[in-house]
Design a binder for these strands. Structure first.
Lengths: 110, 110
DNA sequence: ATTAATACATAAGTGAATTATGTATTAAGA
DNA sequence: TCTTAATACATAATTCACTTATGTATTAAT
């Protein structure tokens, strides 16, 4: 894990982009996918993830379908058209931020 | 300005690295340098900067010399040897974070 | 003269996160 | 078979790095 401070403000971006790349996913699946993609460096906590999903849904960025797997319930999330726009915005915002930080810190990224 | 959320957790890194690259600087000068390097995208607020400088000084990462310019007082900060180690750590931590985010978001940084 | 820029400092408030807690099902291991 | 770990959701309490607001004072610009 990195200093978790750096992660602040990136949660929505991560969730949205992973949903865009992978399609329909449920909450727990998102945490696992991010853990995998980040090589165990980013571990999303439930206390942050679920409220974020609820918020994005309330804002019309995500829609949900509930599915029953045996007796267990899963809530699948997917992007709405609005959500699709938001991903682009958030990702390019992040890339721009990184570019700026590269200038300020005088480091080569990648 | 970017979404200021992304900036969270980067303040110490920015201050330390700018001090490393430019040497001895005073607070206001740091804000101006960062503003310049970031092409007006990162505007450090005093309410964040000064407490951070005080904290880093208290931890032995920075030392200060006070200088009088006319009737005005400037507090110059510079890195201690400990501070010099911390810069390296913070910057490589940041670079590592960016690399991870690149993987998660599937974007090319640079 | 008045305003903007320079230069410091600190207290109050915010908000996105962590931590803690709760419920429940399913799989694994002793 | 019993217990623990993993799966799967949810929300309340707390934290803490930041923003906003406020304060003092000097110097430059209009």
């Amino acid at each position: 894990m990195h200093s978790p401070e750096l992660l602040k403000g990136t949660l929505q971006t991560i969730v949205l982009k992973v949903l865009k790349d992978h399609g329909r996913m449920y909450g727990y699946e998102i945490t696992q996918r991010v853990k995998e993609l980040s090589d165990d460096r980013i571990l999303l906590t439930e206390g942050a993830l679920y409220p974020t999903l609820h918020k994005l849904e309330a804002e019309g960025m995500l829609r949900t379908e509930t599915e029953s797997i045996g007796k267990r319930v899963r809530k699948y999330y997917s992007l709405t058209p609005q959500g699709r726009s938001l991903v682009k915005e958030r990702v390019s915002e992040f890339v721009d931020f990184i570019r700026t930080m590269g200038n300020v810190l005088q480091v080569e990224l990648s």
